[in-house]
Amino acid sequence: MRPTSEPIVVPITEYVVKVASRCNLACDYCYVYEMADQSWRTRPHFPAGETVAATAQRIGEHMRTHGLDTVSVALHGGEPLLAGPERVAGVVTAIRQACPGGSTIDARVQTNGVLLDEPMLTVLRAHGIRVGVSVDGNRAHHDRHRRDHAGQGSWDGTARALRLLRDNPDLYSGLLCVIDLANDPVEVYEALLEFAPPVVDFLLPQASWPAPPPRHGEPAPYADWLTAVFDRWYDAPLRETGVRLFEEIIHLLLGRQSTSDQVGLSPVAYLVVDTDGSFQQADMLKSTAHGQPETGFTVFDHTVDTVLTHPDIRARQAGIASLADECRRCALVRVCGGGNYTHRFGADRGFSHPSVYCPDLARLIEHVAGRVRSDLAVRLAR
C-alpha cells in the first residue's frame, strides 16, 4: 500500500449486504469458501434483526451526511436466496425506511439462480429488487465448476431461473461469467445471449502473484479469449447486450470515468456488510489471505465515515498514487488503472504490484483502442 499525502474521502454509494453466509453450491473457484480466508465458518448463517436495523441506520446516516439521494444495495451471500423471500424483502424494506425521504435505493440480488422461482420472483417484484445471475456459458461450461455439495451440476436450476428472467426483463439486472480458458470464448458468449441478458460481466479468475491463474506465463491467453468475444460483440450488426468490461474500456479511452473496479482509476466507493454486522472490503480479497477484507469496524459501533479512515480503503480511493511504480509509468495507466486490486497482491509488497494479468490487460486495451480508433477515423473522414 502506497501512503497518500492527504486523506481522500469519496462517499460510499454501493453496499454489498450479506443476507446469507452459506451456499447451496460448492463452486471450485469460489473465493468465499475455497480460498485463503475461511471466516465464513464463524459467521451467522443469516443476519439477526438488530444487525439489519443497524446496517440500515448506517446507510441512511451516511446518505444524510453526504447529501446522497441514491445508493445501490446488492444482496449477496453465500447464496442470498437461502435467506428466503421474507428475509430478503425485509432487509431492503429496512434500508429504504432508514434512508432520507425521496431517496432511491437501487436494490438487487446476486444469485446462482437455483432457488429462483415464480413465488420468489413475485416477492422480489413487489419490493423492487432486480436479479443478477452467475452462469458460465452452456451446460458443459457451467457444470465444470458450478456444482452442488453432492458433486452434481447446477445448470438445470440456473437455466430455469434465466428463462424466468428472460420473461421478466424489468427484474433482470444481468449475468456474471467467470472466464475459463478451456471454453471457446465465442461459444460462451453466444450461450449467454440465448437468455437475452441486459448486460454481461466477464470476470477474470481470482488470482494473485503467489497464486497465479491457469496458463500464467504464456504471452496473454486471457486477452486472446476476451478479444475474441470483443470482436464478436463489437461487430454485431445490432446491439445484442452490454458487456461491462468492454464498455468501461471504451468509456475510459474516450476520457470518461470508470464505474468498475476492474479498470480505471475512479475511487472505490463500496463496502461489504457481513452477516455479523462487520464492515469489510471487497469479498475478492478473501482469495489473498485470511482476514484480508476485515476493517475492524462494525455497524453497531462505527459510522461509514469512520470506516473510510481505514488505510486500505484510503489507498483504494487514492487513484494513481496507490499504484506500483511500474504502473504509474505505463502509458495505459489511466485506462487500466492497475486492474483489479486483488490481482495486484504479492507476498513482499502487498498490493503494490502490477496486476498478475498485466500483459492481458495491456493487449486487450490496445486491441479495443485499435478497433475504436479505426472506426473513428472512418467516420471523421466522411
Rank of each mutant, 00 (worst) to 15 (best):
V17C: 04
K18F: 08
V19K: 03
D28E: 12
Q38A: 13
S39Y: 05
R41I: 10
H45F: 09
A53K: 13
T55G: 10
R58H: 02
G67N: 05
L68I: 05
T70Q: 13
G90D: 15
V92M: 03
A94M: 11
I105P: 04
D117T: 05
D117G: 06
R125M: 02
V131G: 03
G137S: 08
R139V: 07
R139H: 09
H141A: 15
D148K: 10
S154E: 10
L164N: 07
R166P: 00
N168M: 09
S173W: 10
L176K: 01
C177R: 01
A182L: 15
V186H: 00
V188M: 08
Y189G: 01
P205D: 09
T227A: 12
V229H: 03
L245K: 01
L245T: 03
E248Y: 01
L254Y: 05
Q257F: 11
S260P: 00
V268R: 13
A269T: 11
Y270D: 04
T275Q: 02
D283S: 03
S287L: 09
T295W: 03
R314S: 13
G319E: 05
V333G: 04
C336S: 05
H343N: 12
D348W: 09
V356S: 07
P359D: 09
D360S: 11
V372K: 01
R373W: 06
D375C: 07
L376F: 13
